[in-house]
């Protein structure tokens, strides 16, 4: 069954590998470039000392400016686990659509072995690809991360354990939708749309609520270094007691008026410090992971029970 399952997903596996290879071809040369620029610029010693400006500040700024474009390009890399997951769901759905599962089921293996074999292989392949992707991106971004931390949404998405969970989730969605609706192209489109919507929802709303954020208040003069490399959710001016300040507003329709800006003495921020990284990762991984497992189980059971 192993050979059969592998052969049936050969095309998709090669496509996923090609995608990763293309990314590697793009990133490895530039990554090496960045790493050497980092080393030769002696920027390691500048980590954590950029507040006061000066030589370090300028050097880091220059570094960031030079490689920013590439960094931005990688924003879309967060879709790659989704593509890989959907891709690896395709062979299973195609088999159901073309009824070739009936051919396999009238050989000498049982349905359970068939389903277990194909799903197991898809899961393993997706995980391997996701891990490879994570390692590649994490290595490439390392210099940036030393300066900016990894709490920023677009960087967080590509690091740690969440990438594997995303790939599994996409796989599960593809399998579940495909098992119920045995038409490959529309099912996979719908699955990918679902992946996209779920990711968007979590990225923009749910993630920050997975762990309770911290609040800090500081005087304007003192530095906000505690916010260095943190994920700041909101920053508001407050008064000395910590109450939010409201800017006075012009009464509507009363003609020109002058608004007196109050003196801002303090700021308050709601944020996740860098130390929350793994807590957030763990919960988000668990969330997508459990949903993925449920979807995959559904696909298996639905396929076994039907007919």
């Amino acid at each position: 069954m192993i050979w059969v399952g592998w052969r049936q997903q050969r095309t998709e596996t090669l496509l996923a590998a090609a995608l990763l290879a293309a990314l590697a071809a793009l990133l490895i040369p530039t990554g090496l470039n960045m790493a050497s620029a980092y080393d030769h610029g002696g920027l390691a010693s500048c980590v954590g000392h950029t507040d006061g400006g000066g030589a370090c500040g300028a050097a880091v700024d220059a570094f960031v400016q030079r490689f920013r474009k590439l960094g931005d390009l990688l924003d879309w890399v967060t879709l790659v686990p989704g593509i890989i997951g959907i891709l690896l769901a395709a062979p299973f759905v195609v088999a159901l659509e073309q009824r070739t599962h009936r051919l396999d089921w009238t050989q000498s293996i049982t349905r359970r072995r068939w389903v277990a074999g194909k799903l197991g292989l898809a899961i393993v392949t997706a995980l391997v690809a996701a891990v490879a992707l994570t390692l590649l991106i994490t290595w490439w971004r390392a210099p940036f991360v030393r300066f900016q931390g990894r709490m920023d949404n677009s960087i967080y998405d590509d690091e740690g354990t969440v990438v594997a969970a995303y790939a599994l989730f996409a796989l599960g969605l593809g399998l579940a939708v495909g098992a119920a609706w045995r038409r490959t192209v529309p099912a996979l489109f719908v699955a990918f749309a679902g992946y996209f919507a779920a990711r968007l929802f979590v990225d923009t709303w749910l993630r920050q609520r997975l762990v309770s954020p911290l609040t800090t208040t500081w005087q304007t003069k003192a530095g906000g270094h505690v916010l260095d490399r943190a994920w700041v959710l909101s920053v508001n001016p407050v008064d000395a007691q910590g109450h939010p300040l409201h800017l006075a507003e012009c009464p509507a329709g009363a003609g020109p008026c002058e608004v007196k800006a109050p003196a801002v003495s303090h700021f308050q921020a709601v944020y996740h410090p860098a130390s929350h990284f793994w807590a957030l990762q763990a919960r988000e991984t668990a969330l997508f992971g459990i949903v993925a497992i449920t979807l995959i189980a559904f696909a298996a059971v639905w396929t076994l029970r039907r007919d």
């Binding site: 069954m1 050979w3 051919l103 000498s108 293996i109």
Partner: peptide, 29 residues
Amino acid sequence: LPRVGFVAQEHPLHRGFTIAEMLRLGREL
């Protein structure tokens, strides 16, 4: 299952497989 053979109406075969690969499928399963 090993003792019963079945050919369905549309005789589904894995279209992307070569004949040699279909035989290998038979051998594996």
